[in-house]
Amino acid sequence: MDFVTSLFPWITNGPLIVVQVMSGLSVAMFLFLVSVGMSLIFGVTRIVNLAHGSFYMVGAYLMVTLAEMLPDHPLAFWLALLVAPLGVGLLGGVIEVTLLRRIYHREPLLQLILTFGLILVIGTLVLLVWGPDNKSVARPEALAGSVKILGQPFPSYYLLVLALAPIVAVGLWVIFYRTRWGMLIRAATVDREMLGALGVDVATLYTQVFVFGSLLAGFGGALSAPTVAVALGMDGDVLTTAFVVVVIGGLGSFAGSFVSALLVGELQSFGILVFPAVSIVLLFAIMAVVLIVRPWGLLGHPEE
């Protein structure tokens, strides 16, 4: 025990651990928002959307613009938080209708390559529109400070994120498991042939799903904007982590994304305390192990 405490002095510091768990949870919330959309899109359309990190980034940048444009009013922040994801959803819709729709019948790898090309296009467009400098978004006044949790300071904005998390999770659960639309999505994920049999307009469903997935990513980006420096490299960072989350949880699995986002969020939060140098390697190593042992992920289904 002495040995352990000498290595990890924080281990006996209960309050620090609690705060660390909580910040891990809020990281998990952002990860869940991007990865569930990515996973959803894969489940239905079988496309791994590599541009999903870019959508997240656009959500954050839209937040920057909206914060500048909207009048200084207590409700402005909340309005922006609502509008920014809609903008990203629109972007996703345009991309789906003009580009992706043409290649659903082609090899999966071409689809991956196409969405990779989109990373570059979107990245440059963001650079042209918003410029190279980092941006920041002010937190709403009520949430600007921090609160004490067991004597440890904790930013109050993260409390909002933590409060939203169960709402989002339950909301998505209701959509997936209690609506006809959600039933169609789950049916499509398990067996695409079935959709035709149910008489569903597949093209429209694909568009809806892509828009919805983009919207979730945009929401993640918008919500995270006040917690980070909004910068050009966000797309790649978010993509790689979301990618790990999705693969570990299982492409196409809603519950998988949830569990895996929690796991990865906490891992990142504690990884920084435990092995600051190699926490990313650890993440990718876990992903590699999952891919080798269960390529379809912890909670996904094997492809026929």
Binding site: V48, P108, L109, L112, T240, F243, V244, V247, L251, A277, V278, I280, V281, F284, A285, M287, A288, L291, I292, P295
Partner: peptide, 28 residues
């Protein structure tokens, strides 16, 4: 040895994961 056990999308993803590991090791 591990990558060729998978196909298509999963093949691509595992190859990417290993490259990220190489990148991180080189970086650190």
């Amino acid at each position: 040895f591990f990558i060729v056990r998978l196909t298509h999308t999963y093949f691509a993803m595992l190859s990417l994961a290993f490259a990220q590991i190489v990148f991180t090791v080189v970086f650190k």
